[in-house]
Computed example of a mutant assay.
Amino acid sequence: MDSTTVITTERLRLRPLTEADADWWVGLHADDEVNRFVGGYTREQAAARLRDIQQQWTQRGHGLCAVELRSTGRAIGRCGLNWWEQFGETEIGWTFARTHWGRGYATEAAQAVLAWGFGSLGLSQITAMIHHGNTASSAVARRLGFTPLREDSVLGRPCTVHALARDDYLSPDMRGARH
């Protein structure tokens, strides 16, 4: 996938985020419950973060995506791959508007991103950095087959880094568990 293509699932469409998404990004992170673990953004901070995401798409061939409902085209969250230079790791991340929690969208989007990351991109491992207390994201990570790797800190906050290896993802046992 490059910056002009998309990933689709039964209910969702994932497309690369661009700086044009800054107002939407600010709105997504304006909810205190949504930003509890990922933080809020000003318009300027959002534009800078989205420029960084676009740069990852250009340099690495992957990045974060807007997640849209296929039925309406409305953006409901974000999911994708993020390269962390300081860790030397590619992380999968997801954040959804509170009105769309509990419907399986994070799991559905993340499953599609994992298939792309381990398939087309050929990544050998993907991590998920989950802040302490984020029980919903921990549950999504478990459903996807991630296991705890280490305790660390990201953006100044303690987190558990979970990992999923390509070989484990592709194993017959894992394929059966995901479906």
Rank of each mutant, 00 (worst) to 15 (best):
D32M: 11
A163T: 09
H29C: 02
M174G: 03
R103F: 04
R175V: 13
S138D: 14
R157H: 05
H131M: 15
R178Q: 10
I76L: 01
L69C: 05
A128G: 05
T127S: 09
P16D: 06
A20F: 08
F37N: 03
D152N: 00
R157M: 12
L17E: 06
R51L: 10
G119E: 07
R15D: 04
A141P: 06
L50Q: 10
L14D: 09
D23V: 08
E10Y: 10
L114A: 01
M1P: 06
C159G: 08
Q86K: 15
R150M: 08
Q59G: 09
L81H: 03
A128W: 01
L155V: 15
P148D: 06
P158G: 13
W116F: 06
D167T: 14
I130P: 03
G104V: 06
A30T: 10
A139P: 10
R98W: 04
W83E: 02
G40T: 05
V26R: 02
Q59H: 11
D32P: 12
V161L: 05
A139Q: 15
P158F: 04
Y41F: 14
A109K: 02
D52F: 14
D23N: 04
L155E: 15
V34P: 03
C159V: 11
Q125C: 12
A115T: 08
G133C: 08
